[in-house]
């Protein structure tokens, strides 16, 4: 028993060391991306402006809805603003960390054989394919999301508690991992259907379209779909609820369980995908 506990302890320590190593690596990647983008600051400024235009248009759509109604599935306008603030932060992080230079490029990498280089590096290839080239402007354009969250909370008169904040962050982290796994799963299907460029975009379209919706909108089959199969509700909706009304412990436990399942599933899918890969040279 002591030996087993000791082994488990060693495993946990190894895991923590690995996570720390990859965090350091990612920080360096972001630093280099920032340095490259800041060299051409005009392009960076324009990129930021474009991201902000998209955010404004997104908010304008909800303004049009609230011009016609007082609530969406019981969520008032300021609750929705908190939700949209978290969603803005999520979407921009998703774009910057994973989508733009990474999963979207996977079909081209498979087709051109550039993937071979990624597979030969002494780093976990999933890490390289998912996080290898950050898109720095999105990290900056994620910041307005905090303003929206703050504004919504002030208007609602909500007093933040430590537990609420911790719960919200936990929902956000778990929900973000779920979204990343979902997008990656769709991208990995490219290994099996190599004559299409759009598979990565299907996962990201699901993420962008549904993470901004309050979870109370979904009932019946849609609840099964968006709570379990394509779990998009945890990152923004439950995270916002944790700030506004408090943590829903049932769904927090569910989010933990789903995150573990999705990590195992993505690893399995990756192993199947790489077996199917034959490289451009062959």
């Amino acid at each position: 028993m002591t030996k087993e506990l000791g082994n488990t302890g060693l495993l946990v320590i190894e895991l923590m060391k690995t996570i720390k190593k990859y965090f350091k690596m990612y920080f360096l990647l972001v630093k280099y991306a920032a340095a490259a983008d800041l060299t051409y600051w005009q392009n960076l400024s324009i990129g930021l402006l474009v991201e902000i235009f998209y955010q404004v248009a997104f908010l304008a759509f909800f303004a049009v809805i609230f011009f016609q109604t007082k609530s969406i599935a019981g969520w008032g306008p300021f609750e929705i603003i908190v939700l949209l603030g978290i969603d803005t932060f999520t979407s921009e992080l998703l774009v910057g960390m994973i989508l733009v230079n990474n999963t979207r490029e996977l079909p081209n990498k498979i087709w051109s054989g550039e993937l071979d280089r990624n597979l030969l590096t002494p780093v976990n290839p999933i890490f390289i394919l998912t996080f290898g080239r950050p898109y720095f402007p999105s990290f900056i354009s994620a910041l307005p999301g905090f303003f929206l969250i703050w504004y919504g909370l002030v208007k609602l008169g909500v007093r933040l508690t430590v537990i609420g904040l911790a719960g919200s962050m936990l929902f956000f982290i778990l929900g973000f991992i779920l979204i990343v796994n979902m997008v990656l799963d769709f991208s990995l299907l490219t290994f099996f259907f190599q004559d299409t460029q759009t598979l990565p975009k299907i996962g990201e379209r699901i993420a962008f379209s549904f993470t901004s919706r309050p979870d109370d909108m979904f009932g019946g089959f849609l609840k099964v779909l968006f709570f379990f199969l394509l779990p998009v509700v945890y990152v923004s909706s439950f995270s916002a609820k944790a700030l506004i009304t408090g943590i829903d412990w049932k769904y927090l436990c569910l989010a933990v369980l789903l995150t573990l399942i999705s990590l195992i599933f993505t690893k399995w899918l990756w192993q199947k995908a790489i077996k199917n890969y034959s490289s451009a040279s062959s």
Binding site: F193, T196, Q197, T198, K201, I202, R205, S209
Partner: peptide
């Protein structure tokens, strides 16, 4: 294949 993928993305 891309056209069908794009149709699906827009439907979503």
């Amino acid at each position: 294949a891309d056209i069908f993928g794009n149709i699906l993305i827009n439907i979503i």
